[in-house]
Write a protein that binds this DNA or RNA. Structure first.
Lengths: 235, 235
DNA sequence: TGCATGTGTTTTGTATACAAGTATACGATG
DNA sequence: CATCGTATACTTGTATACAAAACACATGCA
């Protein structure tokens, strides 16, 4: 019953090139399905069904699930089985606050350290965000925005912090994609403009402005998505 | 040849109570062995040897190793096998900088939010640090210090940030334990005093002081362990 | 001697088999 | 009709078996 829906989700299968570990492809496939909204929160992940959909055995599926569970994308829910995790409002806010605390620092450092190539990478993510906003492609926009923030982090030259921020973005994006109808065309455009301002500061090698604009961006998000931050109304 | 040494490392075996997942105990046992210095950097982790030492099959060992590898405590090194990872100087500095960027914020929040029970937990870690410093027990001191920082993070009420900081502490402590002869009795005492000052600010509910003292502590560490930062001196 | 190659061994990656735990359906009982 | 208990089916956790990759060593050849 669910098997068919999973086969739809993983219609392409995974790259069966023998020299690449299945675990990696399976991990990427499931994570991608979650981040793109093809696997919804609270959906059960049955090892055998996943294995059948992907034409592999349970073993590599288990290892992929182990990692995803450790990253909190999926988790137990009751006694048996793993499910796509649904972030609570509190978790969403905590993760947002975490990035709010870290990203201004990364923007400042990126203004000092970003290479020309890295600036081009960041600009690419920005352009992609514009295109997705125009097409009202929310999932695509979220990925572009995620790439933007992730690449700013990378340009700041601190791998642990950059990884932390990116992983947080992935999880909040999952929340926004599934729960918030809040990400509409106007919101995307505003975010893109704020991103553009940050990139401008990076290009000008102006760390103070970059830091300030990152703070402004976070505050703007808080105001525009205020409903998500209101003290635990429901759920 | 390593089999015997591994059996020494895991002499106690793992808790064999059937209702607890082996994976968890194995994960904890290996991580503990790494953090306490019983497993040294670059030491190979052979699944079958670990399984034999722990009296389980390879399967749960593999899952524990998968998680540890994902957390970067262990990793591939060449073509085959997993090894205890040795942090490069650059990685050590990056992780230190990451915590330097985050911990002042957590100290500030903890001053506002810590419960009396949490303050007592923090004090307990501090007392333990004193005892270990007096006994020149470096590994014990590092754990106590780690607990101190971790509990301050917990008290700040942001799970993702607290987990990030704790995981970073674990990795830098591993570095200090194995590479630095720098953690001597005097250094431990100084750190404990700085920790005590931070705890005082938390008890006084003085967020500004807590934040400032956390920054002071980080700067003090940079100066006292300057040799670890030398080749990369920045800022 | 030095290098290439082949063979045997070790170790991992994947698949499968089996055991144990959990949920569900169904009937018995009040 | 509701509730409980038991049987049954399903899913996971662990063990084992097998295949493929990586390493080590030896041998052959220039």
């Amino acid at each position: 019953m669910n098997s068919s829906s999973l086969e739809a989700v993983f219609a392409n299968g995974i790259s069966q090139s023998r020299s690449i570990r299945y675990r990696e492809s399976i991990y990427a496939a499931i994570k991608e399905a979650i981040l793109s909204g093809k696997l919804l929160p609270n959906q059960p992940l049955v090892e055998e069904q996943l294995a059948a959909s992907l034409n592999v055995s349970r073993t590599p599926v288990r290892e992929a699930l182990t990692i995803l569970a450790h990253e909190n994308f999926i988790g137990p829910q009751g006694g048996r089985g793993l499910y796509v995790r649904s972030l609570s409002r509190q978790e969403f806010v905590d993760i947002f606050v975490a990035n709010e605390a870290v990203e201004p620092y990364l923007a400042r450092r990126a203004a000092l350290l970003a290479s020309e190539e890295q600036l081009a990478d960041i600009a690419e993510a920005l352009d992609r965000g514009d295109a997705c906003a125009a097409a009202l492609d929310t999932a695509g926009f979220l990925r572009a925005s995620r790439d933007f923030h992730g690449r700013v982090g990378t340009a700041a030259g601190n791998t642990p912090l950059a990884g932390f921020v990116l992983s947080n973005e992935e999880r909040t994006d999952m929340y926004l994609l599934n729960y918030g109808k809040v990400v509409n065309g106007e919101q995307m455009e505003i975010s893109n403009n704020e991103h553009r301002a940050i990139l401008g500061a990076l290009k000008n090698r102006d760390p103070e402005a970059a830091q300030r604009l990152a703070i402004v961006h976070a505050q703007s998000l808080r105001e525009r998505f205020a409903e998500l931050f209101q003290p635990l109304a429901e759920e």
